[in-house]
């Protein structure tokens, strides 16, 4: 009994409810003619697609900058990389790599500026991050219209200028990463091995980074900035590095997402993209100032699992698509829960 209670205390009710809910969905699925193999495959694909963007949350949380609601900034860098790669007519894995190579420096510059800004507004990071994200997306809406891209696959046919809202990567680098060593089991089960390998690679790199001198310092800055300063760590620099890292991962994340999804969504597409990522890592057990790679993996599977299962299972049960509502309530409820549960340990 005691052990159960301490487990519940540690995990928190919302997480347990979400996990049980997902479990329930999987149990019910076969009874309402929802194919389990297809559902699991779907969940896995979505996990791979979103994993990198969730991973992007880790550095900033660890450095005490809070949840990165400003992820759209990184995503924009990724979008710029992706459309440039298509403009250059690159295909296959080369296209993806070039997209990333273009996106990463842009993201680094964005992240650096964004980091400088966040260092001046300590304590109010999350709200400002949200609106920096929103306004950068809105600003890019103007840019998508004006940027001189020419590829007929991307611009509006009738005007000849201005990028389209949705750009297909089919024929360029659709599933370029996913299909590496991937396999199909039966009709419904598809396993994107390449995407998992890529995600695993990034997770390992992150794991290693967190164990270097810089990574250790970053975690310490998040844990107690005064201690870190007294130990000779440049707090602002660590925070900036964490923001750059998060932004770069956001850029890589969206490219991974697009190659699997098959489309690049411009304009208001990236607008709310930070929220599922934030919710995922919180569901995985992270708090506003502590996150691990395990949190990323568990959280993404749980959250994406629910997003996959609710439309199919709930639809079959009540003949209504309630997935949208479930998504809003689960993701924002989780963020709300985390925000109201911050226990600051510091004495002052």
């Amino acid at each position: 009994m005691e052990r159960i209670r301490s487990f519940i205390d540690a995990a928190g009710w919302p997480r347990i409810i979400i996990a049980l809910f997902l479990l329930g969905l999987f149990v019910v699925a076969p009874f309402v003619q929802v194919r389990l193999d297809a559902s699991i495959s779907d969940t896995l694909v979505r996990f791979g697609m979103n994993g990198v963007m969730v991973l992007a949350m880790v550095p900033m949380v660890q450095a005490g900058c809070g949840l990165n609601f400003g992820l759209p900034l990184g995503i924009i860098a990724g979008l710029l990389g992706a459309i440039t790669s298509i403009e250059l007519e690159l295909t296959g894995i080369l296209g993806v790599l070039v997209a990333m190579c273009i996106a990463i420096p842009i993201a680094a510059v964005f992240g650096w500026a964004y980091g400088l800004l966040l260092n001046r507004v300590k304590g109010g990071e999350m709200m400002i991050a949200t609106y920096v994200g929103f306004s950068s997306v809105a600003f890019m809406c103007i840019m998508w219209l004006l940027l001189p891209y020419k590829s007929p696959n991307m611009v509006w046919g009738y005007a000849g200028t201005g990028l389209r809202t949705t750009i297909s990567v089919d024929g360029y680098w659709i599933r370029a990463i996913s299909d590496f060593l991937s396999f199909q089991q039966g009709k419904y089960f598809y396993f994107p091995t390449g995407m998992f390998l890529f995600l695993a690679l990034l997770c390992v790199l992150m794991w290693l980074f967190m164990r270097t001198k810089t990574g250790t310092a970053m975690t310490t800055v998040g844990s107690n900035p005064d201690y870190a300063r007294a130990s000779g760590v440049d707090v602002d620099r660590m925070r900036t590095i964490s923001v750059i890292l998060s932004t770069v991962l956001g850029a890589i994340g969206i490219i991974v997402y697009q190659q699997s999804f098959g489309f690049i969504q411009l304009y208001m597409g990236p607008f709310y993209m930070a929220f599922p990522a934030v919710a995922s890592i919180l569901i995985g057990g992270a708090s506003v100032n502590k996150a691990t790679i395990l949190n990323v993996i568990i959280g993404t599977i749980l959250f994406q699992g629910i997003l996959t299962m609710t439309p199919s299972v709930i639809n079959s049960i009540v003949q209504t698509d309630m997935s949208e509502v479930v998504r809003i309530v689960v993701s924002n409820g989780m963020i709300l829960y985390a925000l109201t549960r911050v226990v600051k340990v510091k004495s002052r």
Partner: peptide
């Protein structure tokens, strides 16, 4: 009813 707003959660295919 309202359309899905978050592209991050759209169907993968």
């Amino acid at each position: 009813a309202p359309k899905e707003e978050m592209p991050g959660t759209g169907n993968p295919k």
